[in-house]
């Protein structure tokens, strides 16, 4: 498609652990289009964070022994060409992180350095993207950005330290740090999970507003379908490291095709019907170290059949589809 910005092709992310190789992401193929919000949903351990981080190769802290293996391709559009992020040299990748793909990490509340003032950290982000900015220019831009993300008294806020701000305010700062760089893609990993409900709504509004204003694409990761329903254009449902369903928000949430998606929707608070069956499936969480034979959801699937012992192939495109043998494409 013409407006595809980022394409993931059979991406795999694995971690070497003392207990063996942990395959967090097992072959994900999907496209991200310009100007859209794609949500990645799944329970913890489904690989959504690993996937997002894997795109930028941020799965482990710097200066640590390498224990992450990334295979497959994550291609970013650069004019007419496509550049593969998985094999790019580190210094070039830093440029991509600075200018093209910005990530708001999950622990955003502790993603700020406690010994630097907040304004400086935002300015630092801007100068990483565009070193031409002098100190003062960057500071001014940072203050302006803090205002844009809705912080009252941005001048004063910029001079504060992270521990002097509330959780919601810190989240806004993290968003400011990401957006000020003018990225084409924004990856937000559980941006509202640690916040209480009223603050959540405001942050979501902020994100959607900024995305629209600056024509960014967004990958929004969450385990909360309610939140996702408010912001996303398309949803990718992940389970055990694979995408099991992909489609528009409307289609996935109102007419899910994969049994796991249906399960997730049923599990949302407010949707739950009492049933012993559902309670049972809730109890078993997928073990990331286990190597499933065939479909990973099989132990918990109400529609499992013998044929499911073989890993089902993806039925669909990089834009929509699902991975279940028991359902029509």
């Amino acid at each position: 498609m013409d407006d595809v910005l980022l394409r993931l092709r059979d991406m795999r992310v694995a971690f070497e652990t003392p207990r063996g190789l942990l395959r967090a992401v097992r072959g994900v193929t999907l496209d991200l289009h310009g100007g859209e919000t794609l949500a990645l949903v799944g329970e913890s351990g489904s690989g959504k964070s690993a996937l997002a981080r894997g795109i930028l190769r941020l799965n482990q802290p710097p200066f640590t022994l390498p224990r992450t293996r990334i295979e497959g391709r994550a291609e970013l559009r650069d004019g007419d060409r496509w550049v593969d992020l998985t094999t790019m040299p580190e210094t070039r990748l830093a440029g991509v992180r600075a200018r093209a793909v910005a990530m708001i990490a999950q622990e955003s509340l502790s993603g700020l350095n406690p010994v630097w003032r907040v304004g400086r950290q935002v300015a630092e982000a801007l100068r990483a993207a565009d070193p031409a900015n002098g100190r003062d220019a960057a500071r001014a831009a940072a203050v302006a950005m803090l205002a844009a993300v809705g912080l009252p008294e941005p001048e004063a806020a910029a001079r504060r330290y992270p521990h002097q701000l509330s959780g919601g305010q810190r989240q806004r700062v993290m968003i400011a740090m990401a957006v000020i760089r003018g990225p084409r893609v924004l990856i937000a990993d559980e941006p509202t999970t640690a916040l209480d409900v009223t603050v959540q709504a405001r942050i979501l509004r902020l994100l959607t507003g900024l995305r629209a204003d600056r024509a960014m694409s967004m990958i929004f990761i969450s385990h909360d379908l309610g939140v996702v329903a408010q912001v996303a254009d398309r949803i990718a449902v992940m389970y055990a490291g694979s995408v099991v369903e992909l489609g528009s928000v409307r289609q996935v949430l109102t007419a899910p095709r994969h049994p796991y998606t249906a399960h997730l929707i049923a599990m949302q608070p407010g949707n739950r019907t009492r049933g012993i069956r559902q309670a049972q499936t809730l109890a078993q969480v997928h073990d990331p170290l286990a190597e499933p034979a065939g479909c990973a959801f099989r132990p918990r699937c109400p529609r499992a059949a013998d044929a499911c012992a073989a890993m089902p192939a993806w039925q669909g495109t990089a834009t929509a589809g699902h991975r279940c043998l028991r359902v029509a494409p």
Partner: peptide
């Protein structure tokens, strides 16, 4: 210090190592 989340976040900002 390296294991603190803000270090990875700094890397995510595109800062050089």
């Amino acid at each position: 210090a390296i294991s603190q989340p803000h270090v990875t976040a700094a890397l995510a900002k595109g800062l050089s190592r």
